[in-house]
Design a protein around this nucleic acid. Sequence first.
RNA 1: CGGGGAAUAGCUCAGCCUGGUAGAGCGCUGCCUUCGGGAGGCAGAGGCCGGAGGUUCGAGUCCUCUUUCCCCGACCA
Length: 429
Amino acid sequence: MLLSRYLLPVSRETPSDAQIVSHQLMLRAGLVRQTAAGIYAWLPLGLRVLNNIARVVRQEQDRAGAIELLMPTIQAADLWRQSGRYDAYGPEMLRFADRHGREMLYGPTNEEMITALFRDCVRSYRDLPRTLYHIQWKFRDEVRPRFGVMRGREFLMKDAYSFDLTAEGGRASYDAQFTAYLKTFAALGLRAVPVRAPTGPIGGDLSHEFHILADTGESELFYDAALDDVDLTNPDAPARLRSLYAMEAEEHARVAHCPVPPERLASRRGIEVGHIFFFGTKYSDAMGLKVQGQDGTQVTPLMGSYGVGVSRLMGAIIEASHDSAGIIWPESVAPFDIGLINLRPDDAAVATACAGFEATLEAAGKSVLHDDREARPGEKFATMDLIGLPWQVTIGPKGLASGTVELKRRATGEKHEASLESVLAKFAE
RNA sequence: CGGGGAAUAGCUCAGCCUGGUAGAGCGCUGCCUUCGGGAGGCAGAGGCCGGAGGUUCGAGUCCUCUUUCCCCGACCA
């Protein structure tokens, strides 16, 4: 991709609206533009990241056995009357009428819709268990949106819903999502802490929030410092994590006897990026979801739901991975694999080398953002650092004369000269 | 929803108190000189001063209303 033909409105100045670093960098790096309070347009570079995050989430959902579908953003009020939540939800739900005066809403979540769909599609115990998910835009009319996409009103969310015949099965579905979440966040370059969340009437160990530790997080967490030492690649990591104490401050305050000795009790702030819980027959009962069991009796399936804030994750990743020069994308979500800095677009030899470099790597399946603009080197370096592509390759007349280019790793800042061929070979492998 | 701010060029902001022909830096356009970490010079373009009323000979500036955005708090399955 030639930068001279792309849309990348970067800025040196910090926008006055943005308070936290991820929001500032998202605006400065030309990822998003705010169009109304808590509502954002995704510019080309930001959309690429968003799609990459969604791809990682989707991949781990598929691996965990969840099945993707897509439900609409607009829902009928009557659907929500079936569960009783139309009146219970409050002003956070955006409501409106269509031209016929029918009451509609922009979905803040999809329990009702998935329960109705599943009810209408399934008759037999043989159709269970199933976990279904979709990645779709949601709207919650927050009183006070803030922190950019971290607390927007419109947001992209993965929500999964499990249907099981038994409590044991429900727990297995829950566990599968729990594990998938750990893998998802790890694949995004994040370390997530699972925190016990209140479970309401169900009780037990069946609701967790997943938090990314960051000083700008909205939640205050208290947890066993041993959590920091858990090896997430170990197969028993999920069980280990769930056995260790971790609570949000409000819940922690209610705990009569904290099992963690004071010297091991850590306190950090966290960004909630996922929330999973098992709620049994709450919606299946209310909405008449039943299947016929093996013995001929009607069985009410047990359900769980599992959310990941896809757009919020972009903010969380930046909070966790940036420096004074800009964003540092993990390779799994970077909008391009390589940033190519053409130091002298008006130099025929340099231009030819850059075009060949870009074409070769694109052919090898790598994405390259080629800065071919007529601009000074300093500006190009600064732009590349700001937008945070994992690798920068600089080609200029001096190096090219001896057949070398400069390769820079954004995360560490380390640079070295290498032959054009060896750099191509490194990426094209 | 309570409390507090803000709205002037694409961005960051002066100007308002004390009314008199719209400003700076960055960015943008052209030219020159430059060119390996946001250089320098010259010349330009770009504004219904958020909107509506009012006061006044005259309003970016004073008054009233209104809209929007931001911050603190409450809220956030």
